[in-house]
C-alpha cells in the first residue's frame, strides 16, 4: 500500500524518456508480429506499468493498453476523483475510470482492429480480466510477450539510473539510521522507516533478521522479537517507483562488528572486472572477508519491481548487463552468518 511521497517531477522523469521506452517496446513487439500491448498492474506488480507511464497504483489495480500508435490508456476501477489525481502524477497515458477496466480495454482493442494482443506475463494475468478482454474483442489471440518486454526493459536509461541512485542513497541512509543500542528488533528498525520516508520514499519495507545465529530469514515487525548477538536490517524501498534494497549486518561484540563492517566495505566497493563472471567476481571480492555461502542478483522482471535473476547455484544468464542490479551476499565470517545487499552498477 503506497503511502509515501507520490509526485511527478518532470525534471526527474521527462515525458520524452517514457515516449522513448514505449517506442522501443513497440518496435520489439512489431518484430514479434504483435499488434498491441496489454499489461496488468497492482501494488505488488507495478514494475512494468511504472516503467512505461511513471505511475504505480497506491491501491487497487489497473490495466495499461498500448495501441500500435497513439496514446496509451490506463483503465482502473478507482473513482473519478482518484483518476484525476492519477493524471496529475502519471506523465504518460490517458486515465480512464470504469467499473470494468478489462472490458473497456477489450472494446478499445476491437475498435483498433488488433488481432494479436501481446500480454505481459499471460500465465499470471488475472483470468477475469483476460476473459473480459476476449469477450469484448472476439477473434483476437492473446500472446505472451514477457520475453520481448524483458529484452527492452533490460536496458536502464539515464532517467532510471538517476532515480535508482536516489533510491540507493535513501536505502543506505535508512540502514545507517537503525538504533543499534536497541534490544528489540522493532525499536532497532523503526528509525530506518522514518529516514526512508522523510527522504521521500514512496514505499518502504523494513525487515529484520533478529538473530543471525539462528536464521537468516528477514521478518516483518509483527514477527520480530529481541535481537540476538548478531542481526541484520533489510530495507527495500521505492523512490518515485524505482526500487532497491540494502542490507547491513550488525553485532553486539565490537570485534565482530569490525569484521562485519569490513565485509560491508567490500560490498560497497564491489565491481566486476572486464569480462569477469559475476560469480567469480563475488568469490574474488569477498575472499579475504569469509566464506561465500550464497549470492543472489535481483533486477526488475516484468511486472515485479525486483526479482531474482541469478544466484550462486545457477548461471547469470538472466542478468542484464545493461542495467544495475541488487547483489545480495551471504557469508560465513569466523563461523558467523553475515548478510549484505546493495545496488551495483549505478
Amino acid at each position: 500500500m503506497r503511502r509515501g511521497l507520490m509526485a511527478w517531477d518532470p525534471a526527474e522523469v521527462p515525458a520524452s524518456a517514457l515516449a522513448d521506452r514505449l517506442a522501443r517496446l513497440r518496435a520489439e513487439l512489431a518484430r514479434e508480429g504483435v499488434d498491441v500491448f496489454v499489461a496488468y498492474t497492482n501494488i505488488a506488480r507495478g514494475g512494468s506499468v511504472w516503467w512505461l507511464t511513471g505511475f504505480t497504483p497506491y491501491w487497487n489495480e489497473g490495466l495499461l493498453y498500448a495501441p500500435a500508435q497513439g496514446e496509451m490508456v490506463f483503465a482502473t476501477a478507482l473513482s473519478k476523483r482518484v483518476a484525476e489525481w492519477i493524471s496529475s502524477v502519471m506523465p504518460a497515458g490517458e486515465v480512464t475510470t470504469t467499473p470494468r477496466p478489462s472490458a473497456f480495454i477489450g472494446e478499445h482493442i476491437a475498435r483498433d482492429g488488433a488481432k494479436r494482443i501481446g500480454v505481459l506475463e499471460l500465465d499470471d494475468f488475472p483470468a477475469g480480466h483476460a476473459q473480459a478482454i476476449l469477450a469484448a474483442s472476439p477473434g483476437v489471440e492473446l500472446v505472451d510477450v514477457t520475453q520481448a518486454f524483458a529484452r527492452v526493459r533490460g536496458e536502464a536509461d539515464a532517467v532510471e539510473r538517476l532515480l535508482l541512485t536516489k533510491a540507493d542513497a535513501l536505502a543506505q541512509a535508512a540502514c545507517g539510521a537503525v538504533d543499534v543500542a536497541s534490544l528489540h528488533a522493532r525499536d532497532f528498525i523503526a528509525p530506518a522507516e522514518s529516514v526512508a520516508r522523510l527522504g521521500g520514499a514512496e514505499e518502504c519495507f523494513t525487515l529484520v533478521a533478529c538473530d543471525l545465529s539462528a536464521s537468516g530469514a528477514f521478518v516483518r515487525t509483527d514477527s520480530m522479537g529481541p535481537l540476538g548477538d548478531t542481526y541484520a536490517a533489510r530495507v527495500s524501498l521505492a523512490y518515485k517507483g524505482a526500487w532497491t534494497r540494502h542490507v547491513r549486518s550488525f553485532a553486539r561484540d565490537a570485534g565482530v562488528q569490525q569484521s562485519f563492517d569490513a565485509a560491508h566495505a567490500v560490498l560497497m566497493d564491489f565491481a566486476q572486472q572486464p569480462g569477469e563472471a559475476l560469480g567469480a567476481a563475488v568469490l574474488r571480492a569477498f575472499a579475504s572477508s569469509g566464506e561465500v555461502v550464497n549470492w543472489v542478483a535481483e533486477q526488475p522482471r516484468g511486472s515485479y519491481p525486483l526479482a531474482p535473476v541469478a544466484n550462486m547455484a545457477q548461471s547469470a544468464a538472466g542478468l542484464s548487463t545493461a542495467a544495475p542490479f541488487v547483489l545480495d551476499v551471504e557469508l560465513k565470517i569466523q563461523g558467523r552468518r553475515w548478510i549484505g545487499a546493495r545496488m551495483i552498477g549505478l
Binding site: M1, R3, G4, A190, S194, A196, L198, D222
Partner: peptide
C-alpha cells in the same frame, strides 16, 4: 509525507507491518 514518516515509524515500533 513527513507526517506519514512519523506514522510509519510509530507503527513499525509497535509491531504494525502494514497501514493503509
Amino acid at each position: 509525507y513527513e507526517l506519514v514518516a512519523e506514522m510509519e515509524s510509530f507503527f513499525r515500533a509497535h509491531g504494525v507491518p502494514e497501514n493503509f
